[in-house]
Amino acid sequence: MFPFAYEWTWYFGQYLFMGAAGFAISVVGAGLTYCIVKSIIDIMISDDHAEH
């Protein structure tokens, strides 16, 4: 799975596959992070509004 494993080959198919898998994980991960961060910010903003 990682370049330090035996089955890793520096080969186009490997990049494509692992790239696609990594891309999908990244997109989902980034989306999730975005939502969480955004929610935290949203809370803070609404807290602000609540204070004033």
Partner: peptide
């Protein structure tokens, strides 16, 4: 970050 608030 500038929008962050702190009420303490």
């Amino acid at each position: 970050m500038s929008t962050q608030t702190d009420n303490t």
